[in-house]
């Protein structure tokens, strides 16, 4: 061995400062601690994570922390404003709706279904879309790709909401139906974005290298393609999560969403629409909850995408 490893110093400079990458297998506790540290370095991601943590805790503890059951009516306290306004009461922190139900309690109880429906739908869409997108892109130009592309085109021609309406309309609204329908109709954007990635990845030398080694196609897709489409998938998933919340709200608005007595944010928001002029708080607070949650998910998604990319590690 005439030459010693080159650039030993350069490599260690890159690896040393942030702490990470000193050794890949440092025990899972160390990994968690390291991840947590990078999380705290990003204020947006930290806020996002806190908000989501709050959402999850709220969802789990809803029966215990909610001031009232969500459907409980207080006929003498109808349309009360939030407590800091004239006429508000600290008994109903965010005010009440037209039936005297506590807005805060309804938001607290709505978290659970809203997050579950949107979240599970995103997972269904992602699994479907990424699988189809990877296969379609890997065999771009083949018969499978052609079929998928036609389906994508067809889907682009019909607004998703219309499709969902038709399906729900014919099957009847329920929480499970809604989740599945949202999930099944949401694959298209995943498939499209992922396919575009795969088509360019496929031409990269490391994929050719794997082929020259004799790697089988399924292994190649799992080992070489899939990890490299994760950034795209995460970005699409965060967007899609937000879209799902909004679609769920829109469906509730049309009366085809989740049926009472189950409460969702979209449903509460929808109930407030008749009172926008007189009792704006009914629609505003669930709306705010949706906005904040979607933003939090996006912040977290950005961070996650960076963290999962080994090339980004040196930056933190």
């Amino acid at each position: 061995m005439t030459q010693q490893p080159l650039m030993e110093n350069e490599t260690s400079t890159k690896a040393a400062p942030g702490g990470p990458a000193v050794s890949g297998s440092g025990g899972s506790a160390a990994v968690v601690r390291r991840r947590l540290r990078t999380l705290l370095q990003s204020p947006a991601a930290t806020i996002g994570a806190l908000v989501l943590l709050l959402c999850v805790l709220t969802a789990l503890l809803a029966p215990f922390i909610s001031p009232y059951p969500p459907g409980q009516q207080h006929p003498q306290d109808r349309l009360l404003p939030p407590f800091w306004l004239e006429g508000g009461s600290t008994e109903f922190l965010l005010g009440t709706d037209n039936l005297g139900r506590d807005i805060l309690s309804r938001i607290v109880h709505g978290v659970q279904v809203t997050l579950l429906v949107s979240g599970i739908a995103v997972i269904i869409s992602a699994v479907l879309g990424v699988t189809l997108g990877v296969i379609s892109g890997f065999y771009a130009g083949g018969w499978f790709d052609t079929i998928i592309q036609r389906l994508v085109d067809a889907n682009m021609a019909i607004p998703n909401i219309l499709l969902i309406l038709v399906i729900i309309g014919s099957m009847g609204p329920s929480t499970v139906t809604l989740t599945v329908v949202l999930g099944v109709t949401g694959w298209v954007i995943f498939a499209r974005m992922v396919r575009a990635d795969v088509v360019s990845l496929r031409e990269r030398d490391f994929v050719r290298a794997a082929r020259s080694i004799g790697t089988r196609d399924p292994v190649m897709m799992m080992r070489h393609i899939l990890p490299n489409v994760m950034p795209t998938t995460i970005v699409v998933a965060t967007l899609s999560f937000g879209t799902n919340i909004v679609i769920e709200a829109s469906l509730s608005f049309l009366g085809l969403g989740i049926q009472p007595p189950t409460v969702t944010w979209g449903y509460v928001l929808n109930e407030g629409r008749d009172y926008l002029a007189t009792a704006w708080w009914i629609a505003t607070f669930p709306g705010l909850a949706i906005t904040i949650t979607v933003l939090a998910i996006m912040f977290l998604g950005d961070w996650l995408r960076d963290v999962l990319d080994p090339r980004e590690k040196k930056r933190s």
Binding site: P5, T11, A21, P310
Partner: peptide
């Protein structure tokens, strides 16, 4: 256990 980006072209 390093990733490729941590190396120079020659490496």
């Amino acid at each position: 256990d390093r990733f490729p980006h941590e190396f120079s072209g020659g490496q």
